[in-house]
Amino acid sequence: MLFPRVGRQQWRVRAAWWGVVAILCIGILLHLFPFYFMIISSLKSSFEVLAFPPTWWPEHPTLAAWRLVYSLVRGNNAAAAALLDGPLGLYFKNSLFIAGFTLFLGVPITSFAAYANSKLQRGAIARWSFIFFIGTMMMPDALTLIPNFLLTRNWPFPLPTPPMIPGTSTPFPTVRIWDTAWAVILPGVFSGFNFLLFKGFFDTIPDSVIQAARVDGGSEFNIFRRIVLPMSVPVYAVAVWGMFSSAWDQFLWPLIVLQTPSKVPMSVEIYTLIQKFEQVGTTNAQQAFAQSQQMQQLMEAGLSWNGLMVLGLLQSLPVFVAFLVCREYLLRGIRIRGLK
């Protein structure tokens, strides 16, 4: 309750309350508007979607774009498939693989680190490791982009070429994860923000509970699994959801490190599709004619912005589903985050 009920007798408080409500409503609308526009665009025809000024409601609602995407998924539209580098399901699978492994590795690693920092480390060591982990959050992404890129080429050296072993002409052995899904997964495994979230929660668990379990004879891992974990479900829900949506939606990093077209996730593939769509062109008149005819067909079928909007909606669907699944825990977790 933002303002106590009794206080609303005062007209000033009431006005302020309505003011806050208005601001919140504007915020909600701002957040929902892109979704709204995505949905109506996906229902427009290819020509209406390009109309300027844009229409706020589809004048001739059509499911052409949805049908096209469906045929794309089924793989029985040759013209559209020519624009794609593989079946659409493949990119979906790539996305799932990346997001899944980021979660599978990232949630345990981040939460164990936070638990160790909160309950097992003491004194100056705890202070410094906390500052170190939080420090990773202070680094802007743009700053780590190039070192990270070089690291995926020659791990563990952030250098374009691995250095030579001194006194010899052979280079140090390096691991190359560049152009594999692991190049996307591994940098996302530790998240400073989730570390902070977990640590904030574990700090609220009284030490005495853990000490009681120690006296009872539980090993540190058993204590974590049997006593701490069941208490921490909400905070895990928040972290899982946050990690999933960021792993699912990430774009720049996979675009940089994944060069083989069949390895990219959904988000990158949609972008390439837009690119191709905009840059279709050729030097040969006959080809150009064939291509423009093809494009004409695709446009009619719905592969324009409306088709892309369908893809975009499909792309954001898993995040939305994930939210619905753990909504209850998320709300509880956000309350924990807000109050403690």
Binding site: P206, S208, V209, Q211, A212, A213, R214, V215, G217, G218, S219, R226, I227, P230, M231
Partner: peptide, 21 residues
Amino acid sequence: VRPQERGVGMVFQDYALYPSM
């Protein structure tokens, strides 16, 4: 010796019951 192996029984001021059990 770690507390796990000492075989003592302890009662805490805040009771320290395992909240999820």
